Amino acid sequence: MKNLLLIFAFSLAILSCGTGNKAIDNSSTDTTESDTIRIANDSLEYEIMIIEPGFDSWLISQPKPGHYGQSFLESKNRLFVSEYNSRVLQPQNYSRNLYTEQINYDTAVDYGYEVNYLLYNYFVYFQQKYNQKFIGGRN
Protein backbone atom coordinates (compact mmCIF):
# COMPACT_ATOMS: atom_id res chain seq x y z
CA MET A 1 0.00 0.00 0.00
CA LYS A 2 2.86 2.33 0.84
CA ASN A 3 4.37 1.66 -2.56
CA LEU A 4 1.11 2.45 -4.35
CA LEU A 5 0.79 5.78 -2.58
CA LEU A 6 4.41 6.52 -3.51
CA ILE A 7 3.63 5.67 -7.13
CA PHE A 8 0.61 7.98 -6.96
CA ALA A 9 2.76 10.79 -5.57
CA PHE A 10 5.42 10.20 -8.20
CA SER A 11 2.73 10.23 -10.89
CA LEU A 12 1.41 13.52 -9.57
CA ALA A 13 4.94 14.91 -9.68
CA ILE A 14 5.30 13.92 -13.31
CA LEU A 15 1.84 15.24 -14.09
CA SER A 16 2.67 18.61 -12.60
CA CYS A 17 5.84 18.94 -14.67
CA GLY A 18 4.26 20.59 -17.67
CA THR A 19 5.87 23.10 -19.93
CA GLY A 20 4.59 26.62 -19.84
CA ASN A 21 5.16 29.95 -21.44
CA LYS A 22 5.08 31.93 -18.23
CA ALA A 23 8.04 34.03 -17.21
CA ILE A 24 9.74 33.05 -13.99
CA ASP A 25 10.30 35.74 -11.41
CA ASN A 26 13.65 34.89 -9.84
CA SER A 27 13.02 37.28 -6.98
CA SER A 28 10.23 35.10 -5.60
CA THR A 29 10.88 32.36 -3.11
CA ASP A 30 11.39 28.77 -4.22
CA THR A 31 7.95 27.14 -4.24
CA THR A 32 9.18 23.58 -4.66
CA GLU A 33 9.42 23.13 -0.92
CA SER A 34 6.08 24.78 -0.19
CA ASP A 35 4.28 22.88 -2.97
CA THR A 36 5.21 19.50 -1.54
CA ILE A 37 3.09 18.15 1.28
CA ARG A 38 4.20 14.89 2.88
CA ILE A 39 2.36 12.89 5.50
CA ALA A 40 3.60 9.53 6.70
CA ASN A 41 2.73 7.01 9.35
CA ASP A 42 5.24 4.20 9.63
CA SER A 43 3.05 2.08 11.89
CA LEU A 44 0.33 1.94 9.22
CA GLU A 45 2.93 1.83 6.42
CA TYR A 46 1.45 4.61 4.35
CA GLU A 47 2.75 7.80 2.94
CA ILE A 48 1.01 10.46 0.93
CA MET A 49 2.89 13.11 -0.96
CA ILE A 50 1.15 15.85 -2.86
CA ILE A 51 3.52 17.52 -5.27
CA GLU A 52 1.50 20.00 -7.26
CA PRO A 53 2.55 23.58 -8.00
CA GLY A 54 -0.03 25.93 -6.58
CA PHE A 55 -1.75 23.40 -4.33
CA ASP A 56 -0.27 24.75 -1.11
CA SER A 57 -1.35 28.33 -1.80
CA TRP A 58 -4.77 27.14 -2.99
CA LEU A 59 -5.21 25.08 0.18
CA ILE A 60 -4.84 28.20 2.32
CA SER A 61 -8.03 29.61 0.78
CA GLN A 62 -10.08 26.49 1.57
CA PRO A 63 -12.07 25.70 4.71
CA LYS A 64 -9.64 25.05 7.54
CA PRO A 65 -9.10 21.65 9.17
CA GLY A 66 -11.99 20.90 11.47
CA HIS A 67 -14.57 22.42 9.10
CA TYR A 68 -15.52 18.99 7.78
CA GLY A 69 -15.95 15.88 9.89
CA GLN A 70 -13.72 12.90 9.29
CA SER A 71 -16.63 10.70 8.20
CA PHE A 72 -17.60 13.31 5.56
CA LEU A 73 -14.03 13.39 4.24
CA GLU A 74 -13.76 9.60 4.20
CA SER A 75 -17.02 9.20 2.28
CA LYS A 76 -15.97 11.84 -0.28
CA ASN A 77 -12.54 10.25 -0.64
CA ARG A 78 -14.14 6.84 -1.26
CA LEU A 79 -16.19 8.37 -4.08
CA PHE A 80 -13.29 10.34 -5.53
CA VAL A 81 -10.80 7.47 -5.38
CA SER A 82 -13.33 5.14 -7.00
CA GLU A 83 -13.98 7.65 -9.79
CA TYR A 84 -10.27 8.34 -10.25
CA ASN A 85 -9.40 4.63 -10.39
CA SER A 86 -12.21 4.02 -12.86
CA ARG A 87 -10.73 6.67 -15.14
CA VAL A 88 -7.27 5.14 -14.87
CA LEU A 89 -8.76 1.95 -16.32
CA GLN A 90 -10.29 3.85 -19.26
CA PRO A 91 -7.31 5.35 -21.11
CA GLN A 92 -9.36 5.53 -24.30
CA ASN A 93 -11.71 8.01 -22.57
CA TYR A 94 -9.42 9.81 -20.12
CA SER A 95 -5.95 11.27 -20.48
CA ARG A 96 -3.07 9.09 -19.31
CA ASN A 97 -1.34 12.35 -18.36
CA LEU A 98 -3.99 13.02 -15.71
CA TYR A 99 -4.89 9.49 -14.68
CA THR A 100 -1.61 7.65 -14.42
CA GLU A 101 -1.85 5.08 -11.61
CA GLN A 102 -4.60 3.72 -9.41
CA ILE A 103 -4.82 4.89 -5.82
CA ASN A 104 -4.97 2.23 -3.12
CA TYR A 105 -7.32 3.78 -0.57
CA ASP A 106 -8.39 1.04 1.83
CA THR A 107 -11.70 1.91 3.44
CA ALA A 108 -10.91 -0.42 6.35
CA VAL A 109 -7.88 1.68 7.35
CA ASP A 110 -8.24 4.73 9.56
CA TYR A 111 -5.81 7.14 7.89
CA GLY A 112 -6.72 9.89 10.31
CA TYR A 113 -8.13 13.33 9.81
CA GLU A 114 -5.10 15.04 8.25
CA VAL A 115 -4.64 12.53 5.43
CA ASN A 116 -8.34 12.54 4.61
CA TYR A 117 -8.47 16.34 4.72
CA LEU A 118 -5.52 16.74 2.35
CA LEU A 119 -6.64 14.00 -0.01
CA TYR A 120 -10.15 15.45 -0.21
CA ASN A 121 -8.81 18.93 -0.89
CA TYR A 122 -6.38 17.60 -3.47
CA PHE A 123 -9.26 16.00 -5.36
CA VAL A 124 -11.20 19.28 -5.24
CA TYR A 125 -8.09 21.11 -6.50
CA PHE A 126 -7.50 18.48 -9.19
CA GLN A 127 -11.07 18.86 -10.46
CA GLN A 128 -10.82 22.64 -10.59
CA LYS A 129 -7.35 22.86 -12.09
CA TYR A 130 -7.86 20.24 -14.79
CA ASN A 131 -11.57 20.92 -15.39
CA GLN A 132 -12.61 17.43 -14.32
CA LYS A 133 -15.94 16.52 -12.74
CA PHE A 134 -16.15 13.65 -10.30
CA ILE A 135 -19.31 12.16 -8.91
CA GLY A 136 -20.04 14.03 -5.68
CA GLY A 137 -17.48 16.74 -6.49
CA ARG A 138 -17.97 20.40 -5.80
CA ASN A 139 -17.61 22.27 -9.06
Score class of each variant (00 low, 15 high):
residue 1 M to S: 13
residue 3 N to V: 09
residue 4 L to R: 09
residue 5 L to R: 00
residue 6 L to R: 07
residue 9 A to E: 01
residue 10 F to I: 06
residue 11 S to R: 03
residue 12 L to Q: 08
residue 13 A to N: 14
residue 13 A to S: 14
residue 16 S to G: 15
residue 17 C to F: 02
residue 17 C to M: 06
residue 18 G to V: 14
residue 20 G to V: 07
residue 21 N to R: 10
residue 21 N to Y: 10
residue 25 D to V: 10
residue 26 N to M: 11
residue 27 S to D: 15
residue 27 S to T: 15
residue 31 T to M: 06
residue 33 E to C: 09
residue 34 S to P: 00
residue 35 D to S: 14
residue 35 D to P: 05
residue 35 D to Q: 13
residue 36 T to D: 12
residue 38 R to P: 01
residue 39 I to T: 11
residue 40 A to P: 01
residue 42 D to A: 13
residue 43 S to N: 11
residue 43 S to Y: 08
residue 44 L to Q: 14
residue 46 Y to N: 09
residue 47 E to G: 05
residue 47 E to C: 07
residue 48 I to C: 01
residue 48 I to K: 02
residue 49 M to N: 12
residue 50 I to Q: 02
residue 50 I to C: 05
residue 50 I to T: 07
residue 50 I to H: 02
residue 51 I to F: 03
residue 52 E to N: 03
residue 52 E to L: 00
residue 53 P to E: 04
residue 54 G to I: 08
residue 54 G to H: 10
residue 54 G to C: 08
residue 55 F to S: 07
residue 56 D to Y: 07
residue 57 S to P: 03
residue 60 I to L: 08
residue 60 I to P: 00
residue 61 S to E: 14
residue 61 S to N: 12
residue 63 P to H: 11
residue 65 P to F: 06
residue 65 P to G: 09
residue 66 G to E: 10
residue 67 H to N: 14
residue 68 Y to W: 14
residue 68 Y to M: 09
residue 69 G to P: 01
residue 69 G to Y: 07
residue 73 L to Q: 05
residue 73 L to P: 02
residue 78 R to D: 12
residue 79 L to A: 03
residue 79 L to R: 04
residue 81 V to Q: 03
residue 81 V to Y: 00
residue 82 S to L: 01
residue 85 N to I: 04
residue 86 S to R: 14
residue 88 V to I: 12
residue 90 Q to C: 13
residue 90 Q to Y: 09
residue 95 S to K: 07
residue 96 R to C: 01
residue 96 R to D: 04
residue 101 E to L: 02
residue 101 E to K: 03
residue 101 E to N: 11
residue 102 Q to Y: 05
residue 103 I to S: 01
residue 105 Y to R: 01
residue 106 D to T: 00
residue 106 D to F: 03
residue 107 T to Q: 12
residue 107 T to E: 15
residue 108 A to N: 15
residue 109 V to L: 13
residue 109 V to K: 10
residue 110 D to V: 01
residue 110 D to M: 02
residue 111 Y to K: 09
residue 112 G to K: 06
residue 113 Y to C: 05
residue 113 Y to H: 06
residue 115 V to S: 00
residue 115 V to N: 00
residue 115 V to E: 01
residue 116 N to P: 04
residue 117 Y to A: 06
residue 119 L to R: 06
residue 120 Y to P: 05
residue 121 N to P: 01
residue 122 Y to T: 02
residue 123 F to I: 06
residue 123 F to H: 08
residue 124 V to F: 02
residue 124 V to H: 02
residue 126 F to G: 06
residue 126 F to H: 08
residue 129 K to P: 02
residue 129 K to E: 15
residue 130 Y to C: 08
residue 130 Y to L: 07
residue 130 Y to S: 10
residue 132 Q to K: 13
residue 133 K to G: 07
residue 133 K to M: 10
residue 134 F to T: 02
residue 134 F to S: 01
residue 136 G to Q: 11
residue 137 G to W: 00
residue 139 N to E: 12
residue 139 N to C: 12
residue 139 N to G: 11
